[in-house]
């Protein structure tokens, strides 16, 4: 990534608190156009919060999100909407509109934001659904297809308007290995062939290594490592190594409870009548 390129996304000192608990501590990240950045981390490390902050669903308590050089946190609703029209989001559950068919879901962004003819929209629907391998499912309702399929339809909807940035929230969780590969390849192709910038939030290590131009590992609300995938294959940091190799023992505890287990057990007993 050369310094002369204007970054498409920049995070400067993002902090976020929930009920006094700091979820994000001073997050910095610069993403160049066309780059695929994977945000990696264990469950509950703040990945989804960070993504929701970038897309404007949460307001950071400190720091700024710059999209195309424009401060998205201070943008007016109209301005924010104009920015939002230039990016696509794949939600964790797919978030399909349950009252519309698969085809109508993909068509909605086009119907709402463009003047395209119905014939053209129908063609685009078929093209986008073909990309995720679900062209024959156009007329089904979201509750008639599986969770993995809903996610793929969600991706078809996210790319319906050929966005410049795509955000993925756990794109491959709950998918079978073949569908995972298909989605991974699609993310790679979108970046390589169309120059789409992708921000992928995941805890799927295999996917991360496959698709990422860069990987940023989030732990405890901050990036503990940012680098190219090959740097993650043989990491120096013990926490990163534990995560990459999927070890049960290491510096990252499974249990996130703060109180002592024995105290908690005995305290409950002592408190009983």
């Amino acid at each position: 990534m050369s310094d002369s390129v204007e970054p498409i996304l920049e995070l400067r000192g993002i902090q976020k608190f929930f009920d006094g608990r700091q979820v994000l501590k001073d997050i910095h990240l610069v993403v160049a156009p066309g780059e695929t950045v994977v945000i990696l981390g264990p469950s509950g490390c703040g990945k989804s919060t960070l993504l929701r902050t970038i897309i404007g669903e949460e307001t950071p308590d400190a720091g700024h999100v710059y999209l195309w050089g424009e401060d998205a946190c201070c943008a007016s609703p109209a301005r924010l909407n104009r920015l939002r029209q230039r990016f696509g989001i794949l939600f964790q559950s797919g978030a399909l509109y349950s009252s519309m068919t698969v085809g109508e879901n993909v068509a909605l962004p086009l119907r709402e934001h463009t003047d395209l003819d119905d014939d053209i929209i129908r063609m685009v629907i078929k093209m986008k659904l073909e990309l995720v391998g679900l062209r024959d499912f156009e007329n089904l309702m979201p509750n008639q297809i599986s969770g993995g399929m809903r996610k793929r339809v969600g991706l078809a909807r996210a790319i319906a308007r050929d966005p410049e940035i795509l955000f993925y929230d756990e794109p491959t969780s709950g998918l079978d290995p073949i569908a995972t590969s298909v989605i991974d390849q699609l993310i790679i192709d979108l970046g390589a062939k169309l120059g789409v910038t992708s921000i992928v939030v995941t805890h799927d290590m295999k996917s991360a290594l496959r698709i990422g131009d860069r990987i940023a590992m989030l732990y405890g609300g901050e990036f503990i490592a940012v680098g190219r995938p090959d740097e993650f294959r043989h990491p120096h940091d013990e926490r990163v190594r534990q995560f990459v190799e999927g070890l049960a023992d290491g510096p990252i505890p499974l249990r996130v409870s703060k109180t002592d287990y024995l105290d908690d057990l005995l305290g409950a007993e002592a408190g009983a009548p």
Binding site: I55, G56, E57, F91, S93, L96, P109, H113
Partner: peptide, 24 residues
């Protein structure tokens, strides 16, 4: 209906695709 849409992230999906939930 609207509550279920909120829980299923459908309203968030509308908002982030620049479709105002009040209008829609």
């Amino acid at each position: 209906e609207l509550g279920t849409m909120v829980v299923g992230e459908e309203v968030a999906a509308l908002r982030t695709s620049a479709i105002h939930p009040v209008r829609f």
